[in-house]
Every structure is written in C-alpha cells, then in structure tokens.
Design a protein around this nucleic acid. Structure first.
Lengths: 174, 174
DNA sequence: TCTTGTTGCTGAATTTCATTCTGCAAAAAT
DNA sequence: ATTTTTGCAGAATGAAATTCAGCAACAAGA
C-alpha cells in the first residue's frame, strides 16, 4: 500500500551495495512476497523490524521494482506466446516503437544486436489474434519486416533471481 | 504467508471462469500486490472480506501463480540480457533440456516452431559470463548450435496482464 | 410453484502482523 | 579519544488480515 509513495522510478545508484543479507531477503521475497516480516527475519537471521527496515530500503533504492501478483496466462485466456523479430528503418524512440508500446499484447520490447532491430515478446488469445497484431505491425510506418517464433511449450519461466555467480556451485567438467 | 499452503501447483481447470470482477482484481494486484483488501475492495466495488474471498480463490485456482517481489536486474548485477536460440538433436524432455534447466542464468526456456528448437532468455553479469554459459551449452550433449541476440536496451517489460481483447479499444485504421 | 441448498456478499468481532518508537552497541568519522 | 552514524533488538501501537455470523439472490429439485 505504501510502495513507492515517493514515486522513485528513476534509476539511482543504490545507496549502498547489496550485501549477502539483502540477497537472502530478496531470494525469499522473489519466491513469496507475502512472507511476514517475522518469518522473513527468522529465515535470514534478523528481528522483524530489522528485516522490515532492509526491505524498505530495497524498495526505496529500486532494487525491488514492485510487488506483483504473477498471473497464469492460460487462466486469462492468453494461450499463445510468441517472440517476434522486427526489422525497422530507424533506431531509438522511433514512431514504430511508440506504436508498438501501445499494443497490450506486447509484453516486452527489446532492441537487440544481430540481424534484426527489435525483439518482441507477445501473448495473445489465439493465432488469429497474433495475425491481427502482425497486421497492425506491418501497417506501422518504419516496420520493414517481421519474423515470428511461436512457442510450442514453455519449460522454464522464473523471475529475476538475486543470486550472483559466486553463489552458484561451479560446474566442473571432467 | 499462507500462499499455497496446500501446495496446489498442478494445473487444474479453474473452478469457474473468471468474471469481470476477477479481472479487475487481478489488474490491481498485478500493478501492486501490497494493496490492502480495504483499498482493493474499494477499487473494484466490494467489501474487504469479499475481495479477500475472491483473491483467495484466484490463488487456489492457480490464476495467481504467486506473489513475487520483482527485482531490478541491474541492482543485482545482471546487466546483460540475451536471447539464445538453440538447435538440439532431440525433442521434449531431453538430456540437453535438463542440463539447461540447471543453469541459474537461464530465466526462460521455450520450445519454438521455426528454424530452431529452443529459445532461451538469459541474464548474466557480463559478456564474459555469457560466453561461459554458451561454452557450457556447447559442451552439452544434444546441442548442435546456438545463435545469440544480445539486448542493447529494453523499452518495455511488463508482467502478464489480465485484460482480454474485448477490453482494449479497437485500433481503427483510416 | 414452492422448497431447499448453495453461493457470494456485508458488517462486526477477533487476531495477527506491519509499523513505530526507544534505546543500545558497533563502526565510521572527526 | 570523542562524536556521529548506522543497524539492530525488544516493546508498544496501530492497521490490516482473517474469521465469524447472518442475509439475500440464485439454482436445483420436488
């Protein structure tokens, strides 16, 4: 309820670098953000107010962007997932980009290095709806071509993890 | 704290189809899951316990997969995002897939239709770490080839939205 | 049509938890 | 060495989650 009351969206350098305690807190909160501060503290070895204090800081600093309910796409009818590569004529905040941002089916827009300009992650209710989106894209000035990769099945999908490379056991090959 | 106490992960058909009220609730909770039931109810036109009841059902049915703190990748040092297309020799739950699932840098694994078998979303701390991952991939039996798309900048990144096509204003072209 | 059971709601009551406050101790700065 | 700051614990407070009766609308069945 008080999340980002002061509307801190701008990227500011974290007041202090995240320490191991912060990472542990993040680890728990990524898995289940409804964890009470009592349990949270217990898990990481802090008193409830101390845990609260650190989480508040993590929110202020922007390390925690927001707390969100993650929805099952199927439950809301979004049964089709696709990645769409888009060749455009310009770069940066182009007309095309602005137009694409308006499409509710589009979940992600990235500019990528490689043989294409934009990479879109798109969810629709049907192949027909995807066709509709593609039609809209082609009608957008600045869009040269698109190539779509329709997802057949998703094997893994997890949120951003707080772990750093040194946390993971090194994979030792024979 | 009580989320999924009975460990309901299995996909069960939603007890009942989501109605407009459920979608509104989801809409609010996706934006900010820390919203109190008092405010939540007010926003959608329900009493706090009624809102609570429906949210509980949404969790039980799996429509809400989990409530999670969304982390800023930069804050935890994951400054590099890439999409990696992987050609493999087999399909389904292959050895290669199992191996890839173990990589903490990999956020998503999809099997896609198109000129490649797997599509990975990958976050690392550096290009060097990406190279390390790719090296590991190439060492995995069943991996034939990979092609990487390094993200230069991300323009949009939003969670799964509850809205359905009919909610969006139709884009009328001249 | 009337009955009966079910569903989903409201408003009040209860309990749990978030949040604040007051020291306190260790570390950092001067 | 002294002061200031930082981060924490424990108690106190306030707010919110959760539970608990009713109640009304609706559905199923006689």
């Amino acid at each position: 309820m008080d999340q980002n009351t002061d509307d801190v969206r701008r990227k500011r350098p974290p007041e202090r670098d995240l320490d191991a305690m912060d990472r542990k807190l993040l680890g728990v909160l990524v898995e289940d953000a409804t964890t009470s501060y009592a349990e949270l503290g217990e898990r990481v070895g802090l008193s409830p107010p101390a845990a609260h204090e650190r989480v508040k800081r993590l929110r202020r600093s922007g390390a925690i962007r927001r707390v969100s309910a993650l929805i099952d796409p199927d439950a809301v009818g979004k049964t089709l997932l696709a990645f769409v590569h888009v060749d455009t004529t310009g770069w940066g905040k182009t007309q095309a980009l602005l137009a694409i941002e308006e499409c509710p089916e589009v979940e992600e827009i990235h500019s990528v290095a490689g043989d294409t300009c934009m990479l879109l992650k798109v969810r629709t209710e049907s192949t027909h709806a995807l066709e509709g989106l593609l039609a809209r894209l082609y009608d957008t000035p600045g869009v040269k071509a698109t190539r779509s990769y329709v997802v057949l099945s998703t094997y893994l999908e997890r949120p951003v993890q707080p772990g750093t490379t040194s946390d993971w056991p090194a994979v030792v090959k024979g």
